[in-house]
């Protein structure tokens, strides 16, 4: 709790009332998972933003490197045929 040794960092994910997935909304410091969940409720759902919260230790996240941005993402840039924009979506399909 002290300023000298901040509590571990947690990433917060919230599912909104109409949403189907949890979205990353931010992070916070907390000594353990239960307090992190409580703090996330207080910090990130004050305006009825969500109906479900996940907290994940930031240290548990493996992130892609900005240095690899070109090799990771550029190759997808010239492949517009991967977007299913040429099909009419049947109206029975609720969620896509």
């Amino acid at each position: 709790m002290s300023a000298e040794t901040p509590a571990p960092l947690w990433e917060v994910f919230i599912r909104s009332k109409r949403g189907l997935s949890h979205n990353h909304v931010g992070s916070l410091h907390a000594p353990d998972a239960e307090i992190a969940l409580r703090d996330a409720r207080d910090v990130y759902t004050r305006r009825m933003e969500g109906v479900s919260i996940w907290v994940v230790p930031s240290a548990a996240i493996t992130a892609s490197s900005p240095d690899e941005k070109d090799s990771f993402f550029d190759p997808a840039g010239d492949k517009p045929y991967r977007h299913p924009t040429f099909y009419a979506i049947p109206k029975e399909v609720q969620q896509l």
Partner: peptide
């Protein structure tokens, strides 16, 4: 409050 998180928790 000791942390930003508790600051907002207590004021909530």
């Amino acid at each position: 409050a000791p942390t930003l998180e508790d600051d907002i928790a207590l004021t909530n």
